[in-house]
Every structure is written in structure tokens, then in C-alpha cells.
Computed example of a mutant assay.
Amino acid sequence: MDEQQLPAADARDGIEKTLRYALEVVSDGIWDWDIASNHVKRSPGWYRMLGYPLDGLPEDVDTWHSVIHPDDFERVMQGFQAYIEGRHPTYAAEYRCRCLDGEYLWISDHGRFVEFDGQGQATRMIGAHRNIHERKLVELELQQRNEELHELNRNLEQLVEQRTEALRRANLALAEQAAEALRLSETDPLTQIFNRRRFESSLQHEWLHFQRHGHDVSLLMFDLDHFKRINDSHGHPVGDRVLVAVAKGVRNSLRDGDCFARWGGEEFIVLLPDTPLAASHALAERLRRCIGEVGAGLEHALTASFALATLRCGESLEDLLRRLDDALYRAKQRRDCIELC
């Protein structure tokens, strides 16, 4: 019986030697863990890889623990424990091991159970280490460059967003400035109603519309009577306040679509789209009373002379304004009246 067991033991030793030779060929060091005794046998290649003298460290699991980089330890233990407990089918890890000179070497570590007891519990585990230091450094450098590139891209995206937002705000500010500049260019600075330039533009647009569709359009022009007397008696500041009050009162009596402007000095003009002569005449009567109310506190009554006209087919704007101006001249001869033309 003993003679039969001896060849079997020799055969087993031969298989293990073959296994070790194979592992030595494909790795830089192997380890053999007897789980019951906690004894760990490491190959000469393992010691050479880390720079330790052969068998120069205790042959137990604590030695393995002691050479793992502190930053890698928890991760490695979690993976190892997952295999031991059967929660993961393999054990494989990459981590840094401390060499004899204090430097750390990146290695890959793979292991598996190779022997079990009668209850199926693992009693032995064999693994192999491989030096991956150069490859890992290149990998980490590439990873760092990728992270730097991603960070650069994020910074560029933020910069683009900031520049886009700044450009949007600048464009908005320019648009607001342009709108304000346009408003100022079309507004009488004293009365804050439209000026002559804006009125002429609106009249041109309405005249073209009239040529195509022939709808009723009226013009109303008025001039404050004896306004020079107000400036001479009370001073120009009072005269300016009267002009502002007249503009405000008239504006409140008009529609949103009517164009009301200061024509010059104490002379004002109103463009009344879709308004026949009879309606514009009724409006002029209301404005005449309104102006009288504005001047209620003055030494002399405040009145205005009005001229009314409607657009005529074939008549130029120059002829229309001349006709209106002539009518206002006639009204000024009588004062506080409305002249139709």
C-alpha cells in the first residue's frame, strides 16, 4: 500500500513542479497560500521583482498586507474578500507594492482556489504577480492627459458660454441704446411728443397707404395764440411749462394710432388716420376747450387757432402741407377758431 502511495505522491509533486514552472514562465512571481496554516510560499521571482532578498520576508498573509500601497489597500481587500466569500467568480487586481528601496511598483495579481476539503471548503490558493509598472505609468499618464483635456474642454465650454452670454448682453445693450437713440431722434426734448422728423416719416407712410386704399385721413394743425405775450410777461420757463401742459392735455385726448408732434415753436400738428373731416372737426373743438382749461391760471386766456385738411387723391404732400399752412394763417387772423381747407 505504501509502495502504491509513493508513486502517487511523486506524480503529484511532478504536477506541482510543472505548474510552478508554467506560472514562472507567464508571471514575474507566484504565491502559494495554505489557508489552514496561513503560510504563504512565494517564488524567488517575487522577491527579485520587489528587490527583497530571497525568503527575506515572513511567509504569511500579513507580509502581503504590509507591502500594498495604503491608497490601494481597501480596494484590493474588497475584491479579495468578494472572491473568498463567493460573491465574485475571480480574484484579479492591479495595485502598487512597496519595494525594498521604498519605491512602489505597479503589479497585477491573479489567484484562484486549487484545493478543497471534504466539505468543499477551500484549503489552498495559488496566484501570480506580474510587473505592469511601465504599462501602468503610461496608462495613468494617458488618463491624466484625458482628464486634463476634459477639464480644458469644460473650461473652454464655460468660456464659450460666458462669451456667448456677454455677447448676448452686449447685443441687448446695443439694441436698447439704438432704440433709445431712435426714440430721442424722433422726440421733441421739451414736450416729449414726436418731433417734426418723426411726423414727416409717419405722414409719408400714411400718404402712400392712402394712394393705394383711399381711406379717410385728416390733418389737424394748431398754433397757440399770443404765445409771445406769455414769454414776455412771465418768462420762458413759464412758457415752456405751458407748452408741456398743452402737449400733455392734447395727447390724452388722442388715440394711440394718432401721430401728435411739435411742428415748431408753439405750433403743433396731428395726423389722424381713418378719420373723416367731420370727426376731425369735432376733435378740434374738444382740443380748443382743452387748451383753454390748460391756461386757466394765466393772466390772459390761452387760446389756439386750428386748421383742418384731408388728403386728396393726386395731391402731393408738399401741396397738402402748403394748403394746411395757408388755412392756419387764415385762422390766425381771426384767433381762437377752426379753419377748414
Rank of each mutant, 00 (worst) to 15 (best):
E115L: 14
D10C: 08
L100M: 14
P89E: 08
L174D: 02
H69T: 06
H300W: 07
Q121K: 15
C97E: 06
L54V: 11
L172G: 10
D101F: 03
H209D: 06
Y47R: 08
R87A: 11
A279D: 10
L320R: 05
W46A: 07
W207I: 01
A282S: 15
R312F: 10
R322G: 01
G257M: 09
L156M: 11
D62A: 12
R75M: 12
D32P: 13
T63G: 07
M77I: 08
T90H: 08
S108H: 11
R130I: 12
L277T: 02
R323L: 04
N155T: 14
S233H: 15
Q177M: 13
L174V: 00
Y329F: 12
Y329G: 00
Q204E: 15
A284S: 04
W46P: 01
L287N: 01
P70T: 10
Q144V: 05
Q158I: 09
G239H: 00
H88K: 11
A166R: 11
C99N: 13
R48K: 15
A309P: 00
R196H: 07
E161D: 09
R289Q: 11
N155C: 11
S37H: 09
L19R: 13
H226P: 05
V40A: 06
G257H: 10
E103N: 12
G29W: 08
W263D: 05
V138L: 15
H300N: 10
R312E: 14
N146Y: 14
N171E: 07
I126T: 12
A282N: 14
E115H: 13
D325M: 03
G249T: 03
V250F: 09
E206H: 05
I107R: 02
F222K: 00
I107L: 07
R286S: 13
D13Y: 11
S253K: 09
V217A: 02
H110G: 14
I338E: 01
A296T: 15
F210R: 07
E200A: 13
L254M: 05
R323G: 06
D188P: 08
R20I: 08
L302Y: 01
A9H: 14
S43I: 02
E285F: 05
K136Y: 06
H236C: 14
R75N: 13
A301Q: 11
F268E: 05
R96E: 03
G314H: 08
R241I: 07
A304H: 03
Q4K: 09
G249C: 09
D71V: 07
A261N: 00
D240Y: 07
T18K: 10
R124L: 11
S66P: 03
V25F: 05
E161V: 09
K332V: 02
R183A: 06
